[in-house]
Amino acid sequence: MRRAKRFGRLLRGRAGYGFSFEAEFEIESYLRYQAEKFAKYFDANTYLLITRALDYFDPARPYGGDLVRALAPAQARFFLASFTTDWRFAPARSREIVRALLDNRRILSYVELDAPGGHDAFLMDDPRYHGALRAYFDNIER
């Protein structure tokens, strides 16, 4: 969304549409640049594995779909953060975890940040997110 706003339909140094498969729009060249950078940072096969692991992530599955039972053995304190624009792991999923932890009467804090960064929001410099995380870390006994 932000990217669309930033680039709109801006063309790359030309007056009209060329009706070709070249990178005519600014957004295309931006995406190409980011993709090339990404391909240098990450090993493609590792990335495939990670995305599969994400797809298979379902902690309730071994417990017949019961997340409450899945989290019952946990003794830890929990801090959960979600971002309203994250469609990969939406706040609704995080709230399922909140509900299961409440049922288990666990110590728990949950922040739901209205941030525009989507799934990548946790990588951005969001003072509210960092503030909450810092406050939580500060209370961990050293």
């Binding site: 801090f79 409440l102 728990l108 949950y110 922040v111 509210r128 909450a132 406050a135 939580y136 209370n139």
Partner: peptide
């Protein structure tokens, strides 16, 4: 409120950031 939620975390209080207008469906 974002700032109040951070204050709760700092106060070591269990806090859930939610809008009361949306109901209390996470609670049984």
């Amino acid at each position: 409120d974002d700032a109040e939620v951070v204050a709760c975390v700092r106060n070591d209080v269990n806090v859930l950031q939610m809008n009361l207008e949306d109901g209390l469906s996470v609670f049984r």
